Computed example of a mutant assay.
Amino acid sequence: MHAYADRCVWDVLETRLADLRASGARSLRFLDAGCGPGTWLRRLVMRAHALGFTSITARGFDIAQAQIQRARLAARNLSGLPGVSLTFDVADLSDRLPEPDCSVDITLCLYSALSHLPIERLTDIATEIARVTSGHFITTVRPIGSTPTAFVDSVESVRRLKHDHIKDRCEIDLCDGRHMAFGFHLFTAVELRSHFAGNFEIEDLRGLDLFHSRFTPDSRWNPVLQADDSHFAHELERLEKAYAASAEFMDRATHLLLVARGRRTVTRLK
């Protein structure tokens, strides 16, 4: 259902990798803040290796020990590639980063890792991310008009879901009896830009998946389409590109994508 947004994110990442390689760079450093099971970082390392980077240093971290265990298990064969140093740590995005100033070529913070942070801390956290990022920072978050999500399971597995926009708190009761409650902030595009514009040059800010997931057939309900639907897919693509940066539409996308370039001189956190 969400393949379109994934493809858009990957296109951005792959383009930045290709640009760096075309510039003559042979060494590369990645940081994935809130990496989850490490899927995106593994993809980047493999693609960078295929493009001919001879020295690749990559670190992912997440606050959840279980996610880091999964990430380490899935990446156990990649560290054996020549020139690759890939590590995963348990760490909090609110803490100071161990990376030196202006040392990271691409910093990731994907799929709403920022939404779990106290919103009043976000500008300071953005400053710390900017301190270590010499290249690009890429993040995706959920906007205020996005469709509901159950995070750890499908929406069909949810008995009750409630998001309190005043308290930035989400509560979920799953059909199997599990209960979850956690902080989660939904962003506007203007708000997201405001937290990062002071320390980064914003290159791209747009909505991802305004239409695709809403028009995805559901095999439990819709019949299998016999006719070629390539024209319909083309029209969806055209609509996405036409409205992705529209102020009236982007806050109703499934995700907001922000792509920013780091500035060499930033204010250091005390």
Rank of each mutant, 00 (worst) to 15 (best):
238 R>P: 01
209 D>S: 03
155 V>Y: 14
58 A>P: 00
12 V>E: 14
179 H>Y: 14
44 L>F: 02
139 T>S: 11
76 R>E: 12
223 P>C: 06
65 Q>L: 15
79 S>K: 00
211 F>P: 00
208 L>Y: 01
23 S>N: 11
11 D>G: 11
122 L>V: 14
153 D>E: 10
224 V>A: 08
215 F>C: 08
270 K>T: 02
117 L>K: 01
176 D>A: 05
141 V>Q: 05
102 C>Y: 03
253 A>Q: 07
127 T>V: 10
245 A>F: 06
260 A>V: 14
63 I>V: 13
5 A>Y: 08
19 D>F: 06
232 F>T: 07
111 Y>G: 02
239 L>A: 14
67 Q>T: 01
94 S>I: 12
3 A>I: 03
114 L>W: 14
212 H>Y: 15
235 E>L: 15
154 S>Y: 12
266 V>S: 00
204 D>I: 06
84 V>R: 08
122 L>D: 01
134 S>W: 04
206 R>T: 07
198 G>L: 06
254 T>W: 10
129 I>V: 12
188 T>S: 12
248 E>Y: 08
167 K>D: 10
248 E>S: 11
76 R>C: 10
175 C>G: 04
21 R>D: 03
234 H>Q: 09
25 A>I: 00
138 I>G: 00
139 T>Q: 06
135 G>F: 03
173 D>P: 01
77 N>Y: 10
234 H>R: 04
42 R>E: 08
189 A>D: 08
185 H>V: 04
155 V>T: 13
62 D>R: 13
57 T>A: 14
248 E>D: 15
51 L>V: 00
140 T>G: 10
211 F>T: 00
127 T>E: 15
6 D>S: 10
16 R>Y: 09
140 T>Q: 10
89 D>A: 01
144 I>G: 11
148 P>Y: 05
114 L>T: 00
92 D>E: 12
43 R>N: 01
161 L>R: 08
80 G>M: 05
87 T>Y: 09
153 D>W: 09
115 S>W: 01
131 R>K: 07
170 C>Q: 10
121 R>W: 07
240 E>H: 13
184 F>G: 00
185 H>A: 02
183 G>V: 04
251 D>C: 02
1 M>P: 04
141 V>C: 12
178 R>E: 03
186 L>Y: 13
219 S>W: 07
253 A>T: 05
234 H>T: 08
225 L>A: 09
237 E>S: 12
112 S>D: 13
27 S>K: 10
49 H>Q: 14
127 T>S: 15
163 H>C: 03
21 R>Q: 04
83 G>Y: 11
118 P>F: 12
46 M>A: 13
207 G>I: 00
20 L>E: 03
100 P>F: 06
263 R>D: 06
149 T>L: 01
31 L>D: 06
28 L>I: 04
171 E>S: 14
236 L>N: 10
257 L>P: 02
198 G>T: 02
111 Y>D: 03
270 K>P: 03
61 F>L: 09
43 R>S: 02
112 S>V: 00
25 A>Y: 08
35 C>E: 11
124 D>Y: 15
35 C>N: 08
135 G>H: 07
26 R>D: 15
